[in-house]
């Protein structure tokens, strides 16, 4: 077995798993962050235990770096959360789901049906759109229009008039 330190490792693993559950299940952005910190605790404990088992100090050194990175992460994360909060007046992470496929509903949770709408109050910021790639060429004017695949005037290529300045 792992000597005297097996139970330390087990506690570290359990902290890691608990943090993972929290990270996935919580919807409050701050608690998601805290769950990540809990996972970091588990990792730190495991590192320290291994260092102790091998009788060297590398585990402790690494833990110091973990502390440093956690501090950075907390500073930046909180700044970002504040910025997001200022836009939606809510810490709910599900308000920020603009990357979804556009035809999927904004939330799939049945439980939220009775709650206020999840869409943010501010209008969606303008996203860049790809330009249409070409269109159906018109080879001559008397060509029957129904043979063309589309009659949508936006899709039919017509050389645009020069801008009127």
């Amino acid at each position: 077995m792992t000597g005297d330190y097996g139970s330390f490792l087990a506690v570290g693993a359990a902290m890691f798993a608990l943090g993972g559950v929290g990270f996935v299940t919580r919807r409050n952005m701050i608690l998601i962050f805290l769950s990540a910190e809990l996972m970091l605790h588990g990792v730190s404990l495991t590192l320290l235990t291994f260092g102790r088992m091998h009788g060297n100090l590398e585990g402790q050194s690494f833990t110091i770096f973990i502390l440093t990175v956690a501090a950075c992460e907390a500073a930046l994360g909180l700044a970002l959360i504040l910025g997001l909060y200022q836009r939606t007046k809510s810490l709910d992470v599900e308000l920020w789901s603009h990357l979804r496929e556009s035809d999927l509903p904004p939330s799939v949770l049945e439980l939220d049906k009775d709650q206020p709408p999840l869409e943010p109050e501010s209008p969606e910021p303008p996203m860049p759109r790809l330009t249409k790639a070409g269109g159906v060429p018109i080879i001559d004017d008397d060509f029957p229009a129904e043979l063309a695949r589309t009659t949508d005037p936006r899709l039919i290529y017509t050389p645009s008039a020069p801008d009127e300045e």
């Binding site: 919580r26 992470v93 603009h98 979804r100 496929e101």
Partner: peptide, 16 residues
Amino acid sequence: RLLHAGFVSNYALMMW
């Protein structure tokens, strides 16, 4: 693409 619902938790779970 149904998984691509835009929720952070979903993505985290997939990572997990």
